[in-house]
Amino acid sequence: MNVKKLKRVCILGSGGWGSVIARIIARNVLSMSKFHPKVTMYVFEEFLDGRKLTEIINKEHENVKYCKGYQFTHNLVALSDPVETAKNADYIIFVTPHQFIDSLCKTLHGKIKPRAVAISLIKGFEVKNTGGIDLISHIISKKLNIPCHVLMGANIASEVVEEKKHCTSTLGCKNSKRGAILKELFETEHLRITVVADEDTVEICGALKNIVATGAGFVDGLGLDNRMKEAIIRLGFLEMIKFVDYFYPGGRISTFFESCGIEDLIVTSYAGRNRKCAAAFITSGKSIKQLEKEMLNGQMLQGPPTAEEVGYMLKNENMTHHFPLFTVIDQICQGQTPASDLTRCIESNIGKRTCTPKNLKP
């Protein structure tokens, strides 16, 4: 076997989800003949009790901060330099907070293989100077001049790593041959992957559901009953469909019923850090930034910043009246309106047929 011809994989990001995915991939490549056994992972360097986190991972084979109690296979190598991590990789997996993607791509530009393939697991958008938003996969693809696929789904890192529950994800990949390879790379007995060609819809679902989950957390913090949470999930789901229908025509309605869509929305609205911190925002009187720092062990929220990005776009498009739930969640996050306005928004829209897709395929 010519080792030089084996495909190499790297993971950019080492938070909870990044560490879980790195653990899966490092184990999977050992049984896949097409892949080089060495997997590299970019770690934002931190010091724990005077020791570098990369040093701890490489010596103890465990991310003691973000994935404590779960061992990596010895073929996973942690590095503190993203260029060194990605320069030889054929498959580059992005699992960083979406706020860092622009600077990361600038760092990697011209320093990776020209035929590399990217896979984004990042949930969020980036605001464009023109007043709209851009998908993270589009940014990666444009800035690095490589194709970028997406993986989103109804999974919580702590549940996937425990391997006690059956979890699912949706891989958006237009290239069916490559999709089959990536499915094998990510899939385990307890994490099942479905491949669809509708990449943009998969990614948009992954971002928008965090806005709805934030609203679900507000419902919990306000002490409202389950009927109100059910209503907010329904309204949020309809606004997700409407958003794709208006701004990304050509997607498929069926994608919303994959793991990345309704399933992920429900899971995140009842669990996950966006719901938890949003509930605490109502009950504690603390700011979202303060709660993020106190509750998330160095991880970042995606719901509030995504709501702000979407709100910015809707204002510029004069479309806020078509997305009342997204709008009021953003306003509550920014302190522009009281949380009680969420109740009025839900009550005024219950029973309305708020979404009749015109541009989505079956």
Rank of each mutant, 00 (worst) to 15 (best):
K242A: 11
G206R: 00
L238E: 05
K242Q: 13
T214G: 13
I232S: 01
L235P: 04
K229L: 08
I211Y: 05
G217P: 11
N226D: 15
L235W: 06
G223Q: 09
K229N: 07
N210D: 05
L208F: 08
G236Q: 01
A216E: 14
V202N: 06
N226Y: 15
K229C: 09
A207L: 08
N210E: 12
F237I: 03
L238Q: 09
V212Y: 08
D225K: 07
I211R: 00
E203H: 14
G217Y: 14
M228F: 15
I204E: 01
I211A: 06
L235S: 03
I241E: 05
E239C: 02
F243C: 02
F218T: 01
I204N: 02
E239M: 03
V202A: 06
L235Q: 07
V244F: 13
I211D: 07
R234L: 12
A216G: 15
L238F: 10
E230G: 15
A213Y: 14
R227T: 15
A213V: 14
C205N: 13
K229E: 10
R227H: 15
M240A: 03
N226E: 15
F218V: 05
G221T: 07
L224E: 05
V219D: 11
K229A: 03
N226F: 14
D220M: 12
R227P: 01
V212F: 08
K242E: 11
I232R: 00
V244G: 09
V202Q: 02
L224Y: 14
I233L: 10
V244Q: 08
G206W: 13
R227S: 15
L208H: 03
G217Q: 07
T201L: 02
T214C: 13
L238K: 01
I241Q: 01
D220Q: 10
G236Y: 02
T214E: 09
I204W: 03
F243H: 04
G215I: 09
N226K: 12
A231C: 06
L224N: 02
V212P: 09
V212M: 09
F237K: 00
V219N: 11
G223W: 12
R227V: 11
D220V: 11
E239A: 02
A216L: 12
A216F: 13
A213R: 07
G236H: 01
R227L: 14
C205P: 04
F237W: 09
F243P: 04
R234Q: 13
G236K: 00
E239L: 01
F243G: 03
L224C: 04
A216D: 14
A216K: 06
L208P: 00
F218P: 00
L238R: 03
V219T: 14
G217C: 11
G221S: 08
I233M: 15
A216R: 09
L238H: 03
N226S: 15
G215L: 05
G206M: 10
M228A: 11
I233G: 02
